[in-house]
């Protein structure tokens, strides 16, 4: 792993399983970092494709988050809206190594929802 490509954003135990926390990025979109009950980690731009609701505040179930504004279900894996709804939020490549969480630096700085 090239350390320089990946941004260390902290230790995994800062996020309770089944919840998310936020990571504001100066000059780009805020990122929501999720940890599922099965201990999978995902990072997405913190904006629902529907009306830009903060996905980080939604209820997480399996690898899906339900947006707190209008209950759209968003896949944490793909960022795609599930069911009848159509839309997609950008995802940020993420990896966990030795208890630390890393985001792909280029994706963080360049993350801006279209």
């Amino acid at each position: 792993m090239m350390i320089g490509d990946w941004l260390d954003i902290g230790s995994v135990d800062q996020i309770t399983p089944g919840t998310a926390r936020t990571l504001p990025v100066v000059g780009a979109d805020e990122i929501a970092v999720f940890r599922t009950q099965k201990n999978e980690f995902y990072a997405l731009v913190n904006k629902c494709p529907h009306k830009q609701g903060p996905l980080s505040q939604g209820i997480v179930h399996d690898n899906v988050v339900t947006c707190p504004l209008h209950n759209w279900n968003i896949s944490l894996k793909t960022g795609e809206a599930l069911g009848e709804d159509k839309g997609c939020v950008p995802t940020v490549p993420m990896r966990v190594d030795a208890g630390r969480m890393y985001l792909l630096r280029s994706a963080v700085v360049g993350s801006r929802a279209a």
Binding site: L7, I9, Q14, L23, P24, V25, V26, G27, I31, V109
Partner: peptide, 18 residues
């Protein structure tokens, strides 16, 4: 407190751990 605070904040070319 974790429900209210950000995990960290990213500024261009650096990251600050909260």
């Amino acid at each position: 407190a974790e429900l209210h605070q950000h995990l960290a904040e990213v500024r261009p070319l650096q990251v600050e751990i909260a």
